[in-house]
Amino acid sequence: MSVRKRERCGSPPNNGGFAYIEMMVALTIVSLVGVIIWQGMANTNTLLHKIVFHSSATVRLIQMEKSMRRFIGKVRYPFWVNDLGIEARDGEMKIPFYEGRSDTFLIVRYDEEQLIIGIRQGDTDEMNQTEYFGPFSNVKIELAENEDGEVIGVDFLMYTENRLSEPVKITARFGSNPFWVEKTS
């Protein structure tokens, strides 16, 4: 028995239309994938930025710590000294006996989000070998003491930019300390 193929009603099939739909679906998928990739890249970029920021901050801190320890370590108080002669005013700390010389001062200052360390000779205002560290939203500079209350160096408490992380404390010791300090009346 022969079966007649039933003719389809309506307009004849359109192969070109199917290609368009196919293309639109493909484009939608590509767009979706693109959006997802874009979003992922944006997130990745933020994450990478954070990682790089923290890593570079850590490395900078390590390098800064080295530099500060080197500077403070060159403050060498002769063992016979009875007065440390450290002056702290206007956000600046002035420490004598840089490289063992009473007229050479190590200057430590926090100014415009920068921690500034340099050397000053005699009574001049000019600073040499100046180094800048930062930016920091705040830096506290204090004298470091040992368990007997003797001054042994300088404490730096540094708050990172926008206070994104915990403050970092660095204690840098003087290269040498007086034998003992007997307070003068």
Binding site: G73, R76, R173, G175, S176, N177, F179, W180
Partner: peptide, 8 residues
């Protein structure tokens, strides 16, 4: 008694 004067 000894005291530490310098460390490097």
């Amino acid at each position: 008694e000894y005291r530490l004067l310098e460390e490097e």
